[in-house]
Nucleic acid binder design. Structure first.
Length: 287
DNA sequence: AAGTCCACCTGTAAGC
DNA sequence: TGCTTACAGGTGGACT
């Protein structure tokens, strides 16, 4: 799924439903979504009774912060939806969320969480690539340090982007996907940002000059913030928490548009494979 | 040691 | 109609 705009959209929907509520019960229906291979029963009992203090995002990670309870320290529930994870919240009139699952065609519900207000949070994931990891606050902080910059932070400058991306001979497209450099950029918005910046995705990082980095900074932040405003891009699986599609797919300029005309110069858009993943670009104006 | 490949899964679409 | 293949928004561990 989901890159920064999609994950942030999910966070904004989930936060008001979850914050301040306690977890009454947890049911793990597909154990392989526990990313550390944890025992489902142990995972469920570690969450039982915990109050959710906040729901945050870092890169493509959703972070459900759990308050301390008795002898249990505060903890962080890390969630990655990867390609096909989806959330929904059922009202207290639909215990277990069966009606909601039916309506949203959630055919692969992997986990469900009952809250103390009677609502049920469903997590559905066809491919089960996504999942959950329960961490101590310190363990999360250690993982968090491995992640790169947040590209939409107000103080994230072109100079900082240049520092994050400059070193190495990797193609710029691959570097943008590296979560240790910049966090939250995925395959769609990497292609879109490079098109806006007029940069060939195969260019090596160390060939980009200051002007290139300035255009990339502007292009990346523009595409991410516009996509966030449109609640993300739905090409197949991604849905917001209320089940609707994102709206940015209509505004993509190159991604998934192989063979179409570049909206800037009219040249036919091409697709190439980089590190096993499709990059879309315009050979006419991206150099 | 940075950069690339591949497995992890299921579903869908295209080609024959 | 069916079968096979390629590919899909991500990530991390195993390679070179």
């Amino acid at each position: 799924m989901p890159e920064l705009p999609e994950v942030e959209t999910i966070r904004r929907d989930l936060a008001p439903a979850l914050e301040g509520k306690a977890i009454a019960s947890v049911r793990i229906r597909k154990p392989d979504i526990l990313m550390d291979g944890d025992c489902p029963r142990q995972f469920a009992s570690s969450l039982h009774g915990r109050r959710i203090s906040s729901v945050e995002r870092r890169g493509k990670n959703l972070l459900i912060h759990l308050a301390s309870l008795g002898r249990m320290q505060a903890a962080v529930l890390q969630v990655q939806v990867r390609m096909t994870g989806r959330f929904a919240v059922a009202p207290d009139s639909d215990p277990g969320g069966r009606l909601l699952a039916e309506r949203l065609k959630f055919r692969h519900v992997a986990a469900q969480f009952e809250l103390d207000d009677g609502r049920t949070v469903l997590y559905d994931d066809v491919r089960r690539l996504g999942g959950f990891r329960l961490l101590t606050t310190e363990a999360w902080q250690a993982k968090e340090r491995e992640l790169g910059s947040e590209p939409l932070e107000a103080n994230y400058t072109a100079r900082a982007l240049a520092r994050d991306l400059a070193h190495g001979r990797a193609p710029i497209k691959n570097a943008l996907l590296d979560q240790r450099r910049v966090a939250g950029v995925g395959n769609i918005y990497a292609s879109e940002a490079l098109h806006r910046a007029r940069l060939d995705p195969t260019r090596a990082c160390d060939t980009l000059d200051e002007m290139d980095m300035r255009r990339l900074h502007r292009g990346l932040r523009a595409v991410l913030s516009e996509a966030l405003r449109e609640a993300g891009t739905t090409l197949r699986d991604y849905r917001t928490v209320n089940g609707s599609s994102g709206k940015y797919q209509d505004r993509l300029r190159v991604y998934d548009r192989e063979g179409e005309r570049c909206p800037r110069c009219g040249t036919t858009i091409r697709r190439v494979l980089q590190a096993g993943r499709s990059s879309f670009f315009c050979p006419g104006c991206q150099i």
